[in-house]
Write a protein that binds this DNA or RNA. Sequence first.
DNA 1: GCGGCCCTTGACGTTTACGTCAACCTGCAA
DNA 2: TTGCAGGTTGACGTAAACGTCAAGGGCCGC
Lengths: 130, 130
Amino acid sequence: MSTTYSISDLARELDITTRAIRFYEEQGLLAPERRGQERIYSARDKVSLKLILRGKRIGFSLAECRELIELYDPTGGNQIQLNSMLAKIAERREQLEQQLLDIEQMKLELDTAEERCTQALAQTISQAGH
Amino acid sequence: MSTTYSISDLARELDITTRAIRFYEEQGLLAPERRGQERIYSARDKVSLKLILRGKRIGFSLAECRELIELYDPTGGNQIQLNSMLAKIAERREQLEQQLLDIEQMKLELDTAEERCTQALAQTISQAGH
DNA sequence: GCGGCCCTTGACGTTTACGTCAACCTGCAA
DNA sequence: TTGCAGGTTGACGTAAACGTCAAGGGCCGC
């Protein structure tokens, strides 16, 4: 037997609402087991959820996150599907590279912004001294 | 005299719609000059627009982008405001660091996904060979 | 002076990603 | 047995970020 989770277990642990979790399932990002009506989440579901949250942090849409999750198991893939999966992977990689560039640029701008702020602050303080 | 742009100039060059540009202004991210009714964009406006697009690529909201743009000139800042600006800068920096971690993790997952795909593909092809 | 092109301001529609009830079942402790 | 904590579906509301008309003004070449 393996570890399972209730929906509120995951909600607490990952700091999201149960509504969000159900919504992700509605959108096809999750497919937990059921015990009667009740949802039973596996460790793999939890991994998927973490992937979703990670994706969201870097601006991925839920549709993109779903693709990523689907890439997670290439079972039942015919040749065409597998090739399209590889293409999607390459696409995502390019996107990530672009994001790295964007983040580096943002950091530089934060540097100059900080510099100006500290200078303006020094000015303010020296004037207050007079 | 300096270089200026019409709204459609910028729309073409940055590959966005004029509607989007007007919306950003409506949200306080831009404040172009006017010649009568007509909007006249400066080089600085263009920089702001690029910053917006960069921000969006890494998942920033327009509100966050606006903050970044506001950080761009600390003029008219009293001491309290300047300190709050420095705090915001630090906050954004943390966010960027987290995103870097997330991107690295994503890359790793793409690696394993690709590996599985190519293996599944090899399987498919070898079976087709028989 | 008229059609075409670019600009403007509304105003309403749409998609995404949930929030927020309502109404109901269900096991279990008091 | 009752009442509560935690689960369910369903329906409607909402914020963000624009898209999509509609209606009109300004200039320009023919």
